[in-house]
Write a protein that binds this DNA or RNA. Structure first.
Lengths: 223, 223
DNA sequence: AATAGTTTCATACAATTGTTTGAAACGCAA
DNA sequence: TTGCGTTTCAAACAATTGTATGAAACTATT
């Protein structure tokens, strides 16, 4: 078996191509061409195309979640077991944003692949995706410890909105650049992260500290 | 030509199927089966599959934008030419959220189709999508009038985040329900709209009115 | 060196897809 | 009714895709 050259060559090429062009645009023939291996190698080493994608997703999902948890633990340690809400959210959205934005050359295939997976939702991935929820629960737990007075529902919405802003920014970065005539700088990743975190934190903390600052918000009229 | 029965039957069936199952899962044979017409009818009436999708997208895009603008104008009229920022954002995200969430039976195929289009980004749609930016500029303009002291960049980010929260909520409604064990009620559309609008407005107005309320937000540590 | 197990390769297969074709059916004016 | 343009239809076509096959090449143990 040696070093599984062929196997890993396929994995690397598949991840890169899927990350760049999406699942629906990339065929097995594209992958084996990029990996410089024979077409039949995919079925020989992985059984089927779906199993290749599944293995890729599982591996990368673990890697991304590990990085997120690493940052979360670091933040918790720094705060003596209780992390700031902003640090928690930064740990949640930072890794994916850093991996998908910024200078082209230092973007990570892992993060870009995961975004594709979260966008396209191809069958083999959909089947696995349930596990992601367990991962998010850890962040929900940390948020609850950071903001013990907030309602659970509000916390879930805050978590959800943080991911919303992060993912949408990655997916529509081109549109935002065009809309703003380049004035929104998507290459300043740390600035983007702070904007996302700030937006989410405001939504989570406004009830307690800034409830009266935006009076008209709750007013309903139309319909 | 009579009433173009076949043509419209194809359009209706295609919109419903695409909205329900996405572009990649629906074949022309699925569409003509649902529409009860012959396979060749698609190419006869539309030229190609891509042109069918393009016509659908253009039509529906116009319909959704019209509804958004109608609500925006209504809000502006009520405020004597200057709409509240919350009303502007409500006009932006309300129509799509109302069309995609809530009771299954009263969801609109238009809105669901547009979400699919914004998610999957199939070639014929990508080519047209530039026009959407012009539409968003109108909302950016209204926001600028509502918050003349805000920087343009912040306004664009606010607009972007509002759409982020709306679209992500539609796409990941199932996950949010599961994550929160059903405690986040996605069927209460008006509540969802208020949460999205509130989140976006807070981000836009916090600098002026609640800057000191969330002190730690801007602090950077880790790395 | 010989052999057994693993891996690679060219090629073929079967299924699916969008598209085309040419004849049949239809609608309607002359 | 006749004739003509439009629309429908069944069938076939060409291209693409994931998968399977069987022989060849390779590896390593005996």
């Amino acid at each position: 078996m040696a070093t599984d050259q062929t196997r890993t060559a396929i994995l690397i090429a598949a991840e890169r191509l899927y990350a760049e062009r999406g699942f629906s645009d990339v065929t097995l023939r594209d992958i084996v061409a990029a990996a410089n291996v024979n077409l039949a190698a995919v079925n020989y080493h992985f059984g089927s195309k779906d199993e290749l994608i599944a293995e890729l997703f599982v591996t990368r999902s673990i890697a991304l979640n590990r990085e997120r948890l690493r940052e979360l633990r670091a933040a918790e340690d720094e705060g003596g077991g209780r992390a700031e809400i902003s640090a928690i959210l930064r740990a949640l959205v930072g890794p994916i944003l850093r991996g998908c934005l910024g200078p082209q050359n230092q973007r990570s295939a892992v993060a870009q692949f995961m975004i594709r997976a979260s966008i396209e939702s191809v069958p083999p991935i959909r089947r696995i995706k349930t596990k992601e929820i367990d991962h998010l629960r850890k962040f929900a737990g940390a948020m609850q410890r950071a903001l013990p007075d907030s309602s659970e529902v509000d916390l879930f919405w805050g978590l959800h909105f943080a991911l919303a802003m992060a993912h949408h920014t990655i997916r529509e970065s081109e549109r935002l650049t065009k809309l703003s005539d380049g004035r929104c700088d998507l290459d300043d990743v740390e600035d983007v992260i702070e904007r996302v975190v700030r937006g989410a934190v405001l939504g989570l903390t406004a009830r307690m500290s800034a409830a009266k600052s935006a009076p008209k918000v709750a007013a309903r009229e139309a319909r």
